[in-house]
């Protein structure tokens, strides 16, 4: 009797497991927990950029008396940094961890696409048109201020001794900036791919092509 009872229960359990094996799992909350981790990755990059900008803004205020930089240059630089901070805040306004847990999937995908679009515009348009002229002006300011501090007129060779380290610094900064940019864009791509793999959101062919582009 006992064996029959447990045999029957075992066979019933076997039926249950066979039935469940045929089903697939999509777990909304688990997906959101994973996405929240990725949202944190994106937001950490933004905080890093903001911290660097605030640090640079503070340094420039100190630099004015030390390096005899021109007031217009310092003012333009401070405004430029402020605009960068404001744009970072604006582009990341929809990328909050709490949104990952509460907003619907379509909204999350759209916010990721908006973020990618913003990053693309910043890299392709804003950076070359503003950063390069600023850099040239910066090099001029530093060589000019050096002449004023030392009280001599620099030769071309002397200027190169100032310009080359500045350019090396700019290259390092640019490389770090690009790595951060790619990390954000790649993470946004992962979030979009994860949502699309596990839900049935409609995407147009244009949107699919858009997601495949590398920015």
């Amino acid at each position: 009797m006992e064996d029959k009872l447990f045999e029957e229960m075992r066979s019933q359990l076997g039926l249950l497991q066979t039935k469940l094996q045929k089903e697939s799992i999509v777990n909304d909350r688990l997906l959101r927990e994973v996405m929240r981790t990725k949202y944190d990755v994106i937001n950490r990059q933004a905080w890093f950029s903001v911290a660097c900008a605030l640090f640079a803004m503070t340094l420039f205020v100190i630099y004015v008396p030390l390096y005899h930089l021109s007031l217009p240059f310092v003012i333009v630089t401070e405004i430029y940094m402020l605009v960068c901070v404001a744009c970072t805040w604006y582009s990341h306004r929809d990328v909050r961890s709490s949104k990952a847990m509460n907003a619907d999937m379509l909204t999350l995908v759209q916010s990721m696409r908006r973020l990618k679009r913003f990053y693309h515009l910043w890299l392709v348009w804003v950076t070359p048109t503003t950063l390069i002229p600023w850099l040239v002006w910066c090099l001029y300011e530093f060589t000019d201020s050096f002449e004023q501090m030392v009280g001599v007129t620099l030769t071309t060779k002397d200027r190169l001794y100032i310009i080359i380290p500045c350019l090396v610094g700019a290259a390092i900064g640019g490389t770090i900036g690009y790595i951060k940019h790619r990390k954000v864009v790649n993470t946004a791509d992962e979030i979009i791919a994860q949502i699309e793999d596990t839900t049935d959101l409609p995407t147009t062919p244009d949107q699919q092509d858009y997601d495949k582009k590398r920015y």
Binding site: L16, K19, E23, I25, D28, N102, D104
Partner: peptide
């Protein structure tokens, strides 16, 4: 909240 919890598509 207003989410659509998706789970195993079976109602035992």
């Amino acid at each position: 909240g207003p989410t659509i919890p998706l789970t195993m598509d079976v109602d035992l």
